[in-house]
Computed example of a mutant assay.
Amino acid sequence: MAETIRVVLADDEAMVRAGIRGILTLDPAIDVVGEAADGSAAVELVRRHRPQVVLLDIRMPRLDGLGAAAEIRSAVPGTGVLMLTTFSEDEYIARALAEGASGFLLKSGDPRELLAGVHAVADGAAFLSPAVAARVISTLSNDRMSRGLAAREQAAQLTERERQVLALVGAGLSNAEIAAKLFLVEGTVKSYMSTILTRLNVRNRVQAAIIAYEAGLVDEA
């Protein structure tokens, strides 16, 4: 039997929390173990419950979602951070990813994206809603030539096998999917990922995936 995905949900609007919780409870594999109305309370709940995933609204009192994401990634790095917002401005996306978020969802998106995002992040993958992914790719494409050179230099530090793993991360595969595709055990993929993040000097899979994209590795996957 698959392990239940424990989730902490943080949003300062009670009705929004109720709606999100209602969607999450439709999936028997997801268990909402805590709810918070501000970022500070969310951090404390994550420390207490150590869930696989925390859903954070961008704008909250006391401590906003971006600040909470930074604290959570530092205190409980095993918890994946999914950002929730009604704002799709590039600055929020960039800052959320820089703070170590594993994914970014728009509240106005399809409820199925919410469930898919929770499962993906719990499985160690990254997740961007299609609308957000389009913005990220557009931003990267505007300056891809210069960024691509830097990314290729970073990727050149990796072994051939590590480059293969990075390419599949860029293609959006989880550790389990990468293991199956490369005929490896999942623990070996996790070990590769740890080395890759260290050598690339990035915080998480999303940032590694961006380098894979910019270096052209995804096209080779």
Rank of each mutant, 00 (worst) to 15 (best):
A151Q: 05
Q154S: 12
M145G: 04
V165Y: 03
I178E: 01
A171V: 03
T159V: 08
G172F: 03
R161G: 00
R135N: 09
L140I: 11
I178A: 03
L166C: 10
A131I: 12
L168A: 09
R163E: 12
P130V: 11
G148Q: 07
A171G: 13
G172L: 05
L149V: 15
A167E: 06
L149M: 13
N175E: 08
G172M: 06
I137M: 08
A151H: 02
R144D: 03
S138E: 11
A131R: 08
R163I: 06
I137A: 04
T159Y: 03
S174C: 07
S141V: 14
A156T: 06
Q164P: 08
L158A: 10
E162F: 08
R147H: 07
T159S: 15
G170F: 04
Q164V: 03
A179E: 09
E160S: 13
E162Q: 15
A156P: 08
V169H: 00
L158W: 08
Q157C: 05
R135Q: 12
V136G: 01
A150S: 14
A134V: 13
V136Q: 01
I137D: 00
E160T: 13
G148N: 10
L128K: 05
E160C: 02
V169K: 01
E153Y: 07
V165A: 08
L166V: 10
E177M: 04
L149Y: 08
Q157H: 07
E153A: 14
L140T: 02
D143I: 11
S138W: 06
E160P: 02
D143Y: 14
V132T: 13
V165C: 07
S174P: 13
G172V: 09
I137S: 01
M145S: 13
S138G: 09
A151E: 06
G148R: 04
S141M: 15
L166M: 08
D143N: 13
L128P: 04
R147P: 01
L140R: 01
N142Y: 09
R135T: 15
A155T: 12
R163V: 05
R163M: 09
E162V: 07
S146W: 05
L166P: 07
A167R: 02
A155L: 05
P130L: 10
A134D: 05
Q164D: 15
E177C: 01
E177Q: 14
Q157L: 15
S146K: 13
M145D: 11
Q154T: 02
L128D: 04
P130A: 09
A133V: 03
T139S: 09
R144I: 15
A131C: 03
L149F: 10
L158I: 11
R163T: 10
L149C: 04
S174V: 06
L140F: 08
N142K: 14
E177V: 00
L173I: 02
A151V: 11
A156I: 06
R161W: 02
V136I: 10
G148P: 06
R163W: 00
G172W: 05
I178N: 00
R135I: 15
T159H: 02
I178D: 01
N175Y: 02
A134F: 07
S129W: 05
